[in-house]
Amino acid sequence: MAFHVMVFVIVIVGLPFLPAIVPDMPTPITVDLVTIAKTTQTKTFSRTPSVRKPKPDQPPPKHETPAPTNMSSSAVAPDVMPRPQDRPPHKTVVLDKNKLPKKVRKKRDKAKVVKKEQPQDFAAVLRNLEDSTPKPVQKAGQNAPLGERMTMSEEDALRTQLESCWNVPIGAKDVENMSVSIFMVINRDRVLQSARIVDTARYNSDQVFRAVADSALRAVRNPKCSPFDLPPDKYNIWNNTTVTFNPKDMFQ
């Protein structure tokens, strides 16, 4: 009996560790599965083509403008250089949401509803009088993991929402090559809990990157984009979300 038990144990414990004969397998072909919902859930944001009109002339400076006088190569009095003094101490004030006066809260709620700014179609943000034909927009890549996942239309919904909240600092040198990742923790009610910049080292050393990163943070914190347009039943997927902001499509 003991012998039989021993043989049984050896079979159970030992078999998994026996060297397996691995047959030659063909090179696997990676297929990125994409889940598509039956109906699209992308919200339709009206994209009003808009050309920025030149701003009206600046009001005339209030300060004195000397009348033309006859001067013979007279010197201009040098300006006195102001001296940067002590930097005021860093001061952050955190106010309790509940302490906000009712009047203000009401106004804020109202502002959320009324102040719907229309996102603009800036397919070509750099004006060219010779050729202003907008180029087609490329879609961002699909990076969801296998298994339970967001559908394309669900991702598009969030993407479209964030696009409408991201005010890009266009015109900065090489801004089209800036890529800023923001890691977000989102509450079950689809409201942002926290957001942080992934590449903090570059944030502290590159001014243009910092400006783009700040604009991306403002986008995810923008009240217009709260709550996020996400499917409530997929909280486990979007609880931790990383959004990479890169304005490259605006330069095509």
């Binding site: 490329q138 990383t242 902001f245 890169n246």
Partner: peptide
């Protein structure tokens, strides 16, 4: 499962 999204 974490969500990764590109906004371009």
């Amino acid at each position: 499962a974490d969500l990764h999204l590109n906004v371009n």
